[in-house]
Design a protein around this nucleic acid. Structure first.
Lengths: 236, 236
DNA sequence: GAGTGGTCTAGACCACTTC
DNA sequence: AAGTGGTCTAGACCACTCT
């Protein structure tokens, strides 16, 4: 683990623990932090830059570095983004059910999103996820078998991402998402217990590995009353 | 304008113009780029880092820097994010109508989001926006008069953001967004021409200046069939 | 082994904020 | 004037990929 990452983790924990809550929520100046963490100023900047990107701190040139005021009470949630930049507001006991798990010839539209050839073999996975035994998302996922190999039911019951990163040792790097609202369909009525006038939040995602290859295309439909997505973005 | 920003703009333009489309979409190595742009390696890295954050390029350690394959055809759209990290997929002639424009005592819940005191004066703005004369979003905005001063109808007809940045010279830095689907309400039926079973995509936003102050709280409700949001995020 | 990106340093100068 | 963050440098060493 690089030094700037260790420093980032350490300072983030201090902020969460309220160690910098005095003096207008101000952090020590960069030079002092450098001395404390025994690093150069560039390395400290790299650590602090990550916190800025996450919306945890902000800097005022000529003034100092400050913790961002988090308006809502749920600080933990606001600080707890998942790997792709979104956090979920739902908490409870999670479980999932696999509706379909197969290898298919990749349809044309999906092949173009995954940058593979039409009819290349892909896993097709359909899952329902539950919170406290209530369904909240219907998820259709496609992954090229040439990249993600050896999937089975056991892995699907747990975390596919963990399998990819820890067993296959393929580093995940980024994701493109499109979010939209939609009327619910027959599938949504039955799988998500929705009635006709209740909408869904649909998320279309393409996820990439560090080597630039798309390894996942997914469409997920969330119950409108059980899910929201948060995002923080900084101008550069 | 800092050097790394100039280099970033320049390389971004080259990519858009297809100047790096040969050799597997590979860019020259960093040292060569440093020589060409007459800068240090750290500065070049800073420029390239911005392109990585935007999902325009990716790097393979020990291999090179490559342009990200953009699966859909609309390259321009994918490269043309707005200041808060989202881009819109709708195009056409834009216009807007102001439904309400007043100064009010700030309600408690909104004051807590803007980090101001209850009953502090805030502008309240309600606008409908149209594309090709079709309504697509109903937008309620609150701004503290202590920060954003001198708003009038002329400014509202144009761009509030332009007014803030160019006339008031207040640098905008970041925004927090929450996205959710919702059933349409009476207001939506009338202002967005929606029927009862048609949903909306609701976006709640708090926007911040460089000095860390929240200057805008807004709720906007978009027609489900006219709007979607895209986002790109990188693991760090 | 050659080439590439990833990290880190020690110091310099600048621009901005506050007193 | 003092203190702070913003930018930039020239070079070092490492880890990874490909042949």
């Amino acid at each position: 683990m690089p030094k700037y990452k260790i420093i980032y983790d350490s300072i983030k924990n201090r902020i969460i623990n309220g160690e910098y809550n005095k003096n207008n929520n101000q952090l020590p100046d960069e030079i002092s932090l450098c001395k404390e963490f025994n690093c150069s100023r560039m390395t400290m900047k790299k650590a602090l830059d990550l916190l800025v990107l996450e919306g945890i701190i902000f800097r005022k040139a000529g003034h100092g570095t400050f913790i961002m005021e988090i308006p809502s009470k749920n600080k933990i949630n606001a600080l707890d983004n998942d790997l792709t930049g979104f956090s979920k507001t739902v908490t409870g006991k999670a479980s999932s059910k696999i509706i379909d798990f197969n290898i298919i010839f990749c349809p044309k539209e999906i092949a173009s999103k995954l940058n593979i050839k039409e009819n290349d073999p892909v896993y097709k996975i359909i899952r329902i996820r539950y919170i406290d035994n209530n369904p909240f998302v219907y998820e259709k996922t496609f992954m090229p078998t040439s990249i993600i190999d050896g999937l089975n039911m056991d892995i699907l019951e747990g975390s596919i991402y963990k399998y990819i990163e820890e067993i296959l040792k393929l580093p995940i790097s980024s994701a493109k998402k499109i979010l939209r609202a939609d009327k619910s369909s027959e599938l949504d009525y039955s799988y998500l217990d929705l009635s006709k006038d209740e909408p869904v939040l649909e998320v279309e995602q393409i996820a990439y590995l560090k080597n630039g290859k798309a390894f996942e295309y997914s469409i997920s439909r969330h119950r409108y009353d059980k899910f929201e997505f948060t995002s923080f973005s900084v101008k550069h």
